[in-house]
Amino acid sequence: MHIPDGFLSLPVIISTTAVSASLLYPSIKKLDREIKPERIPLMGLSAAFVFTAQLLSFPVFGGTSVHLTGAVLISILLGPLSGFLITTSAVLLQAFLFQHGGLVTSGANVMNIAVIQSILGYYLFRVFPKRFYISGAFIASFSAVVVAAAVCAAELILSGTIPLKAGLIAMITSHLFAGLGEGFITVIILEMIRKLKPGLLHIKKI
């Protein structure tokens, strides 16, 4: 879902970059006010995790390949703002270091991966009561990926890069598999943390 340069039209680039940029500045300010220095190493490790997770892709039915994002997992652990900033830095770093995702299209990629998955995915998870922690995490991760894929498809369709019907089908079906994978990995890691270091699940969510 890392859209390369040249695949989006100018109006789509401008609107998605505006959305991402307008959320970035207030988030940084708020995080700066509320975060204690002790949190920084944990955030750095989470950023490394998200970065690595997004470089691992697996082939799916139809011959394409998709990859995990880890965005919702990090938001569940650290909070939506932290998740948003961590995922944004991972996405931007991938674009600048390895052209995994274009430079001009970074705004759209940040919107699809960081804004939709970290922020929306978190609040979707919060809809579920505490006793549905695991199933809520699964459903939130899965849905976040599929919604992000739909938005990504809309951006590509509006730019004329993919056809409406066939492109939408290709995007959504391939990301249904990615969503399932994301849901399983999120749940597995949360369960591991619960068994090995349950205190981590209770840190303040910022």
Binding site: H2, P4, F7, G63, T64, V66, T161, A166, A170, M171
Partner: peptide, 10 residues
């Protein structure tokens, strides 16, 4: 090249 899932290149 465009694989219709948001990946491709020039």
């Amino acid at each position: 090249i465009n694989d219709w899932t948001g990946h491709g290149g020039t």
